[in-house]
Nucleic acid binder design. Sequence first.
DNA 1: TTGAAAGCGCTAACAG
DNA 2: CTGTTAGCGCTTTCAA
Lengths: 344, 344
Amino acid sequence: MKRVSIKDVAKEAGVSASTVSYVLNNTPTETISQETKKRVLEAVSKLGYVPNLNARSLSSRRSNLIGVLIPQTEPGKELMFSNPFYGELLSSIEYTARQHGYHLLISGTKEDQDYLSIAQNRGVDGVIIVGTYPGENLNALKTLGVPIVLVDSYVKDDDFHTIGIEDKEGARIATRYLIARGHRHIAFISGSIRENGVNIKRYQGYCDAMQEAGLPVDEEAVYSGTVDYEYGITAADQYLSRGKKQSAAFVTADVITMGLIKGLQQKHVRVPEELSIVSFDDVYLAQMAYPTLTTIHQDIGEKGKQAVHLILDAARSKEHHHTECILPLRLVERDSVCDWRDDS
Amino acid sequence: MKRVSIKDVAKEAGVSASTVSYVLNNTPTETISQETKKRVLEAVSKLGYVPNLNARSLSSRRSNLIGVLIPQTEPGKELMFSNPFYGELLSSIEYTARQHGYHLLISGTKEDQDYLSIAQNRGVDGVIIVGTYPGENLNALKTLGVPIVLVDSYVKDDDFHTIGIEDKEGARIATRYLIARGHRHIAFISGSIRENGVNIKRYQGYCDAMQEAGLPVDEEAVYSGTVDYEYGITAADQYLSRGKKQSAAFVTADVITMGLIKGLQQKHVRVPEELSIVSFDDVYLAQMAYPTLTTIHQDIGEKGKQAVHLILDAARSKEHHHTECILPLRLVERDSVCDWRDDS
DNA sequence: TTGAAAGCGCTAACAG
DNA sequence: CTGTTAGCGCTTTCAA
């Protein structure tokens, strides 16, 4: 029950505490004889010694901890996983971190909350921030002096590394695809369109594709709410009450699409016959859906992996050149789109 | 950039470091004058002081950290969130912990990995373990000397607190419901059936209900695999290759059911007309499914919340009486079940 | 009501 | 090649 400390090990092995430390950390500047090393290792396993990482962190100023900030989608909501995207991303981050001997300190965040202290508190070695936050909050984080990776944010700042995807291009591909299938009235349905967020880029891509094809962007065809299932249902209602004017929609998140389809089905509107949909993300939901979702695939696992690597690399090299990583996107064709045909 | 420490605050306020500590912790044994308190607080906010929790943990032996161990469903898989159940549970745990000033240290675990050290390392104040693990691994955790909560495990041990649901009863309710709807050949489809796991209880509940009704439990009607979408598809294939002998199935996880339905749809088997399904969990998937899932609802949010409370209470009271918390279940009727009618 | 001092467990110069 | 020493930032007796 009594914790065994480095001193106990030292005593057992008949060496000093620092020697034990050197052996355990493979300290490059010190060189220990095989004999001593062996004795120390034996003492360690005999006593079942496990280093106290808090103490280590105190004196060495590295914690092997990575802080992860996941946005709470909605202020009122307590759950951060209303979108499976976060779960998949977090999985990948956790796995990659663990491979490298790092642990994860996770926290959801309320908009108004000062998440700076969370990190500062624990002396994390780096912070991964998912989503878009107001700039002033981010600025406070700089004072931490550790690498910070922004996932899916277009905040440009030399002090932050970023990892994202070709949001605009993805939206363009999606929209073009619908146009190629004969659709001319195409809705854009997304979560909130915020400065430096992904949705504004996707909106631009959507507009670009429409304009390229000489199609007007109708104000009424643009739906914006929150990134969750419930909003999808709401959007379905709005679509119907606005007169069902589009034959296709580009939706910026699979989870919204799920709700949209559900909402439409409840009103006996068929997908894709009456509304073709190209979605975004390709989370596992996309295959579970009925119909399965034609969607812009992003490699969420890779996103998480790269985020961790950015932290580790930055921590290692100590250089402060900002790195930007953009992952490619591709369209996956499934069953939520059909050709447009004139019913009138 | 330079971290401000308690000493800086002390200097600024013209008091000693210990006084600052007293003020910040509201130490009950010490009593500080309003005047001093005010000066300290002013200095804190002026300097933007944030306590270093590692240091605090070192000297006070509490870390305000809760360790959470999430099983990696499959040895080969790197992702822990193949089942949205974990995401929802973790959300709730995180939220509750944060409300109480605790942070979460999460880790996936490989079966063979010694997750003891993860916790020991960081001096967590408690550990929440989700799922079933081999007993010997758990025993090692006892040496930590902190409260441990087992979620969804039937390991009985005075050193562990447990939180779970009425698995057996839930299965009984589900199976009885199918029987009441006229079904006589009912499949049981689940993840691996392990000692002390939930599925063995659910299997028992299934058997009980069958026997009560005088129905035989057919070996061939029992399918067991892994708790994921892919297995559901596999189970669909098996069901067909074994001759489609059952008119209904009780499936022990919504995520498996999703795969099952998909697998059946691919083979043009209709749900519920050809196979009625009662599922388990009622994760958000259940409503997204087509058809929506009739399923045994469990309150995942409550489960996470209680898990955290068990830790906090145990840490506070220092008593070591084992607490057991069992949450109720109920059937939610949706669209994946219909009455049996004789087609032959 | 406050401060001085010891120490939590570890690392990192610096000696030897 | 190894030990001594001095902290890391905080809490907590104990004394004043």
